[in-house]
Design a protein around this nucleic acid. Sequence first.
DNA 1: TCCCTGACTGGTT
DNA 2: AAACCAGCCAGGG
Length: 122
Amino acid sequence: MQAEFPRRGAGPERRSEKAGRDPAVHERIFHLVRQVPRGKVVSYGRIARIVGAGTPRVVGFAMRAAPDDVPWQRVVNAKGEVSPRSAGDGAAVQRRLLEAEGVRFDERGRIDLERFGWLPEE
DNA sequence: TCCCTGACTGGTT
DNA sequence: AAACCAGCCAGGG
């Protein structure tokens, strides 16, 4: 499925190599996260890198506003753990959802990325 | 438009 | 191995 990210009107994209401001960054992020299979996880940094726009922080911000059809729970930090929220119990919910799909957490609450980490090539 | 905040990261202590 | 720190960039006030 090709990335049909919406264009802003018919105007030319004045976007330079350096992502800068791209109105479709969130859409691209959502599209990618939707490809992560059940039982697998991917880090914020990896997503930002693959999408080629934004930064890990932006990915986190996007997850916060993610539509229901986006498996946001499959996005974890580079250490392989569920990132703590500044508010709410989202982290606890996320962990529960992941465990329900078979993702295992060790005693320190970390996921073995070698085993559960997802790569688009796979 | 300026200023601050944050579901992050990688390099240093 | 864990705590710190500076860079990062898109929203919202």
